[in-house]
Design a protein around this nucleic acid. Sequence first.
RNA 1: GGGCAGUUACCAAAGUGGCCAACUGGGGCUGACUGUAACUCAGCUGUCUUUCGACUUCGGAGGUUCGAAUCCUUCACUGCCCA
Length: 376
Amino acid sequence: MTFEVQHTDPNSNARAGIIHTDHGVIETPIFMPVGTVASVKSVHQRELKDDVKAQIILGNTYHLYLRPGIDTLERAGGLHKFNGWDKPILTDSGGFQVFSLSENRKLKEEGATFRSHIDGSKHLFTPENVVDIQRTIGADIIMAFDECTPGTADYQYAKKSMELTHRWLERGLKHFDETESKYGYSQTFFPIVQGCVYPDLRKQSAEFIASQNRDGNAIGGLAVGEPTEKMYEMIEVVNEILPKDKPRYLMGVGTPINILEGIERGVDMFDCVMPTRNGRNGMLFTRNGIMNMKNEKWKNDFSPLDESGTSYVDFAYSKAYLRHLFISKEFLAMQIASIHNLAFYLALVTEAREHIQLGDFANWKKGMMEQLGRRL
RNA sequence: GGGCAGUUACCAAAGUGGCCAACUGGGGCUGACUGUAACUCAGCUGUCUUUCGACUUCGGAGGUUCGAAUCCUUCACUGCCCA
C-alpha cells in the first residue's frame, strides 16, 4: 500500500491524497461504510459501488471469526471473494468489541478472553491470532488489536490501558512481519493510538505509534463517551505527531460535522455505523440538516427525499413515501435510508476533497457546518 | 320468545368496594443512536399545569355507601346458545 498527499489546504491541516492498494485506489479524505458481518447492512454491492460510490468498506474480525468462521472464509478464498466486493477492505481487529462487549470479556496480558454473544462459547483473542484471523479474512488493511479505552476512564486506567495496547502492538507487528498474505495481494497493518482524553498520554502514544513507521496510522478511543471538544483536542495533539506522509484513520467517527472537523485537523479516513444504523432507525443526514423520517410532519410531503442529494433514491422516492415505509416497518425503508445516508457521507467527503484541491476548504467548511447542524 | 355472557381510554384487554386516571399489548407522538450483540432503545400517550397538583372519566340514567370502573335497579346495545 502506498499513500501520496496531492493537495494541502493553505488554511488548515486538511489534505487530499490517494491510497493505492492491490484492490484499487482510495481517494482521501474518505468515508468507509461499515460492513461488520461481511455485509453493509441492507445495501447491495452494486448500490454500494454505483450509487453510494464507496471506495472501501470495513469488516470485523470478531464477528467474522464467530460467523461464518475463518475456515469458511479461507475456503471462500478470502472476504473479497466471499462477499463479492472486489475493492479494498479494512478489518477492525475486535478491539472495539473489547470495549462494547465489556461484560463478556476478560483482559489479560496475553490477550482478551471473550464470550461469544451468539452462543456464549469462550474464545481468546491475542495480538498474534488476531493478525492470523485478519490474514485469513484477507483485508487490504488490517488493524492492531487494542483496548478501546472508554472516554470516561480515569488517568491511571487510561495509562495502563494504553501501555497494554502498546505491548500488544509490538507483538502484533512482530507476528505480522513474520507472516504473509494468503491470497497473493499485499496487506498492510495500521497501529492505533490510544490515551483517552489525556494530552500527555495521547502524545506519548502517537510518538510510539509513529516510531513503528507503518504505512498508515489510526486514532482510536475517541467518540466513546468523552465530550466532543475533547475529541477534537486529542485529534490535534495526535496529528501534530503522526507522520504527514501517511494516512491517518480516525476510527469510528462520526457525525458529518465530526468528519469535517476531523478533515480540517488532518484526518484522511473515517468509518462509522451512524449512516447505516441511524438510517435503519429512521434518521436521514442531508446537507441541510437531519430529518427523522418517522415524524408526522412528513406524512403528506411528496417532495423528493433530498433535493440536495446525489443518490438515485433521493429523487426516486418522496419524503411521504419513505415515512410511510418506516411507519409500516417495510424493509425498503431501511434500504433507502441507508443508501441515502451513505451516499450523502461519500458525497460530503468528496466535496471536501474538491475544496481542498481548490484551496478553499476552510471557507467551504464554515458554510457547510452551519447547514449540517440543523434539524429538519 | 327463552337462557347465558358482555359493554373500560385510538384499538385490544386487565381491573370486580378505597393502594385507579385505571396493569399490559398494539397503535400514535417525540427523542436517542459515533472502530454495529441495534429493522434497536428511551420517554410521553383523559383535560389543564413547567413541577406540585387540580379536574373530568370506565355504555346511559338512577340508587346503596364515608367512598363505586367495581354492589343494586332499570334502560340501551353486542355476542353466543336453545326454540
